[in-house]
Design a protein around this nucleic acid. Sequence first.
RNA 1: GCUUCUGUAGCUCAGUGGUAGAGCGCGUCCUUGGUAAGGACGAGGUCAUGGGUUCAAGUCCCAUCAGAAGCUCCA
Length: 670
Amino acid sequence: MTQVKLPDGSIRDLPAGASALDVARDISEGLARTAVAAKVDGVVCDLATTLPDECEVALLTPRDGESMEILRHSAAHILAQAVRRLHGEQVQYCIGPALMDDFQYGFYYDFDLGDAKITDDDLKAIEAEMKKIVKEKLPIAREDLSAADAKAKLAGLGQHYKIEMIDDMSSEEQAAGIALYTQGEFTDMCRGPHLQTTGQLGKGFKLLSVAGAYWRGDEANKMLTRIYGNAFFDKKELAAHLAKLEEAKKRDHRIIGKEMDLFLLDEKVGPGMPMWLPKGAVLRTELEAWLRGLLTKAGYSMVYSPQIGKLDLYRTSGHYPYYKDSQFPPITFEDEGHEDDGFLLRPMNCPHHVQMFKHGQHSYRDLPLRYAEFGQVYRWEQSGELNGLTRVRAFTQDDAHIFCTPEQLEAEIESCVALVQTIFETLDLTDYSVRISLRDPDSDKYVGSDENWELAEENIRHVVKKLGLDYVEQIGEAAFYGPKIDFVVTDCIGREWQLGTVQVDYNLPERFDISYIGSDNTAHRPVMIHRAPLGSFERFIGILIEHFAGDFPLWLAPTQVAVLPVSEKYDDYAQQVTQQLRDAGLRVDFDHTSDKVGAKIRRATLAKIPYMVILGEKEAEAQTVAARGRKAGDLGVMSIADFVEALAQERDTQGETSLIPAKIADEPAE
RNA sequence: GCUUCUGUAGCUCAGUGGUAGAGCGCGUCCUUGGUAAGGACGAGGUCAUGGGUUCAAGUCCCAUCAGAAGCUCCA
């Protein structure tokens, strides 16, 4: 006798040896058909699982969140089965998980295909085979074996990667036994659980792309073939997902950057070397000006330094030769007679700033010293890593180095974090996560003593806890000289990028042997903070483009006002208005085309220009403008002075208020 | 760097081994207009680059360069 308690509290008695599926049948045939899996005493398992004598059972249907993972996992198996049908026995399966947090994909499977090759074109054929397997409604059956038996069986199937996986399991894991799942002619090692039959996958799945992936994610291992797909219980959900991906792609900064003429990546100049076109340069100029203001308030001093330095400088800092592979090759002289052994395009600004600190004597009374520079740096990123503005080889950090006493350190870290938060909030970038990047004690890529590292990591943890930030710790993500607090945001297609960063460094001060005179009249070692709230202007603006989908707030908008005369008869008046707006410091485009006003409005709207003024006979006579908001539409007629004042206010408050009626602000974004 | 895919007009993209195409944009002309597309005509091409196959290559093959997705990397 099996006694089952259901989630509603009711109790059902079933014959001994009953399965979760029997429970479903006992309730209704319909439920038995649609149920995906069961939760027995809180553990998700197959419907075929035999129940213990007394247990709590919840049946999972497509409506339950936990079912999705099972669906996608089974989809991966069906994919593997299809690939083996099409490409034969040589196909070995590696891993094929469900992805629940990925923006694009729902599952993948990695294969070692032997001699065979799968390209994008093959996906359709594989998908067709998967549809066949779904139609066949093959029952999916689990078999529990000892590790030895499982290995014997997998060896018979030629699945050597799976055997390797068993061999790498701990002895406890091996002792717990290995599960094999079989559907039709296909058997795979898997923890499960799975759908009842392949038929339950239905039609809501699609294969999306084929890519390479290293076995176990290790570059030294063989490259496998990975096929990505996604699956939903409902075809409509799949369609909605695909539409969402399409929408997201339209926000892509590479697309918008082209449409709006913001920046240029030109292969003649070089990959990963962005150039700011006039409109994009406005974004950069405005951000820089705003930051300079914030830095002045926070007690920073702006400095400038060259973009190259002697090789020896970087030997001292530790950049060279340890990071040789990720730098541009040194500039050296081939002919004899040069005292210098060469120069390096700088991968970081810190050595220059340290030398600037070192040039004079510093009393403890002078500290903290905060040197800020919008410094361009160069790094040799792997070609496969380059990505629009988010991963480039030449970029400009909004960098600063703070030299302070150990006592001042935590307060300085706090104010750096506060600065990052202010900046992110002003730009409405609220969706970010905080990561503490620590060193991997087993790695040799870090400089400095263990004591220095422990101290710095403790400082950082302490501040983050004090500020009550939600954060995750990541081992091995630290800079080579110290741990850091990173601010990570996600781009329009779900990729994560580090923007702001605050780094604590006890090591470069030692390596450069810098000091200040303390109150005891002896030399002391200062601590350095490296910090960049934006990270780099390039990456930050890339993310900003996607965040606003190119529809920037007025203060950042490359063009702020479009002047649209109703006909060429009013060009003189339009010219006069244009000049008055420019005199007020506004960025204005005068539309000289002979189009009708409707076409002019359409063009300005598509160009994402926040405001338009439409000028015709009435306006010319009354010396007024008919204002129009890109989102709000017609704003009515007003004097030029009133229009200018409203825009100046919106610009200078960075959009926090506007004199133009609330209807603009209330209008939902597109 | 690795796997797969892509590269045709300023942009987005069609294009069966046999004379290079469309839409948008751009220019000129007509039109002089009132809140998201007026009309006509026209200019614009090393089909990424270099080899090869072929009577013939934008199209097939190889290499290189660049881009995309993913993996690896990111001081």
